[in-house]
Design a protein around this nucleic acid. Sequence first.
DNA 1: ACAAAAGTGTTCCTAATACACCCATGA
DNA 2: TCATGGGTGTATTAGGAACACTTTTGT
Lengths: 243, 243
Amino acid sequence: MVESEEEFLKKYNVEEFKRPSVTVDIVVFTLIKGKIKVLLIKRGMHPFLDCWALPGGFVKMDKSLINSASKELMEKTGISKKDAYLEQLYTFGNPKRDPRTRVISVAYYALVDSSKIKLKKEHKKNIKDIRWVSVYKLPEKMAFDHREIIMYALKRLRYKLEYTAVGFELLPELFTLTELQKLYSEILNEKLDKRNFRKKILSLGILKPTKEYRKGMHRPARLYKFIESKPSSTFKKIKFEKK
Amino acid sequence: MVESEEEFLKKYNVEEFKRPSVTVDIVVFTLIKGKIKVLLIKRGMHPFLDCWALPGGFVKMDKSLINSASKELMEKTGISKKDAYLEQLYTFGNPKRDPRTRVISVAYYALVDSSKIKLKKEHKKNIKDIRWVSVYKLPEKMAFDHREIIMYALKRLRYKLEYTAVGFELLPELFTLTELQKLYSEILNEKLDKRNFRKKILSLGILKPTKEYRKGMHRPARLYKFIESKPSSTFKKIKFEKK
DNA sequence: ACAAAAGTGTTCCTAATACACCCATGA
DNA sequence: TCATGGGTGTATTAGGAACACTTTTGT
C-alpha cells in the first residue's frame, strides 16, 4: 500500500538533519554628495566585535528571501520596497565564513535615493555605529566576508548600469543630465564624454525633459525625469569611451 | 569586563533559532544529438512522488555550496568538477516551495560534454527513473518550482553564450564549426547565418584549427579545438542576425 | 566682463548585418 | 553525376568614439 503525500507529510520529521543558518545581507548603495556609498554597521557583539559589517539578519521560517531583505532595508534606512531597487546578488556559503556555526548568506543589493533615507541612529546594544562609507574607502576591519560581498555588488552594479536603466534609483525624481553623468562616472570610476553621454542616454527614450531648471551659480540646467513605464528596462549596452 | 571572542564562541548555542533547510539543485545541460537537454529524476518518494525533479540534495554542514553541487553532479553523471562548467544560478527561497518544511534551494547550472557522462542508472529506492529531457519539452508534472529554475537557467545560458566562450563545455574536444553553430542555434532557438557566425567566432581568437577532419557522407569538415588559455573568456557580445 | 557650468554636431571607424555561389566527397 | 553539407567575400549600415566651441547665468 503506497502512502499518500498527506500521510507522508504528517510523519515528516523536521528535526532529522542538522541545518545551516541562513542570513540575508544587504549591500545598500546610495549617492551622497555625488559619491557612491554603502551602509555599514559597527558590530557591538561577537563575532567580529567592533568590525564593520553589512546590515543583515537571519531568515525567519515563514519569510521569503526578498521580504527578509526588504524588512532589513526598512529597519535600517526607513525605505520601503517600492522606493528602492532590490535584487538578489549571490549566495555566499563557505563553511568557515562565520566562526559560530555554518551560516549561508543570501546577499542582496539595494539602490536607494539618499533623500528618502531616515537612518535609525538610536544605537541598540548590538550596534555601535551605523554609517555611509565610500565603496572606494572601505574600513580595514570588516566582518566576515563582507568586503568580498561589497566588491561583488559593485561589480554587478557597474554591469547593470551599462545595460539597464537602474541608475535612476539612486537619484531624486528630478535631476540634471550632468548629475546623471556624474553618477555613471563615479560608479564606473571613469571619465565620460559629455556629448556622447547625452546623445546616448537621450536616444534611449527613458528620460523626459521637464520645464523646470536647477538654478545654481551659473547657467541653469534643465531637469529631467525618468519615465517609469518600463521599470528597469534593458537596452543594448550603454557604451562610453574606452578610457 | 568585556568577553573575548573566544569565550563568546564557546557559549554560543547553535540550536537557539529554528533554521530552514538548504538544498543545492543543479540544472545539468548537455547536448545529445544536437539537442539541448537537462537531467531530470523521477521521484520515488514524497513529496511530488512520480514527478520529475532536478538532481539535488541537502547541504552538509561542512561542505561548501559549490562542492555540494559538484558532488551531486559526480553522483548522478560521473563527471568531476574539472570536466564541467559549474556556476551558481540563483537562490530560490519561497517559504511554500516545499510542502515539508522551509527549504531554501541554491540552484547551480552545469554544462557537460555528453561523451563524458556515465549515468548511474541503478535505481535507488528514491529514484524511479533518470533521463535527459529536452528543455523545450519538459514534462507536465514537475516537482517543486523546478520548471521555473530550469527556465531561469536556460535564460542565463543563452545570455552567457552570447558574451562568453562557455559553449565549448558542451562539446567534445574536437568539433566542426557547423557543430558549434548548431549548438548556438539550438540553445538560442534561432537561425544563424553561416558566414557571419564563422567570421565572428574565428575573429575571437579562441579557436584553433587542427589538421583533422570529420568524415561523413559528404565533404569532410575541419575540426577545431577550443584554446583553453583564458577559461570562459569574456568578449564583446557575440551578436548575430536580428531574426 | 568674466568665471563656470550648460548645451550642442560632425567626422571617423569598427563591427553587425544581409546575401549567393563554388567545393569536396560518398553513393 | 548528383545530392549534400563545407566553405568563402563584399557591400551596406548602425552605432561607438573622438573632439571644441557657443550660450546662459550670477557676481
